[in-house]
């Protein structure tokens, strides 16, 4: 049984439309203009990953939300889990850029870090 995917290559501004067929362990990519694109297509169906950015609640800060992101890309199908895992999180000021807010978020092995400093106000 084979599965077909269509993705846009994000390696360069050209943005080739790749059509990818997966049959068992074999991955077949067409529509690329260079080898980078072929490689991207293969990775994109085997193990697509993305950085997830969102916000968490923060107390006593200038704004009620602190922007955070995953320190590394997480598997694409875990994006929703990461967002859900951050729903109840509340942090206290002060926070430093790069500080770990949640360790090993949703069991992905990736930490969630603060994107900025946030001082206590008021």
């Amino acid at each position: 049984m084979s599965q077909e995917y269509e993705v846009l290559c994000i390696r360069c501004p050209k943005g080739c439309r790749l059509r990818i067929t997966v049959e068992g362990n074999a991955v077949h990519v067409v529509g690329f203009a260079c080898l980078e694109g072929k490689r991207f297509g293969e990775e994109e169906v085997r193990n697509p990953r993305r950085i997830v950015t969102t916000t968490v609640r923060i107390l006593n800060a200038r704004y009620p939300r602190l922007p955070v992101r995953t320190a590394e890309p997480v598997p694409k199908d875990r994006i929703r889990d990461v967002i859900d895992a951050l729903k109840g999180v509340v942090v206290e000021t002060p926070v430093r850029r790069g500080q770990v807010i949640v360790k090993d978020v949703a069991g992905t092995g990736v930490d969630v870090i603060a994107e900025r400093d946030m001082e206590a106000v008021g």
Partner: peptide, 11 residues
């Protein structure tokens, strides 16, 4: 940018 089409819309 195509990367945004892929990451923001198609994903």
């Amino acid at each position: 940018l195509p990367r945004n089409v892929q990451q923001c819309i198609l994903d």
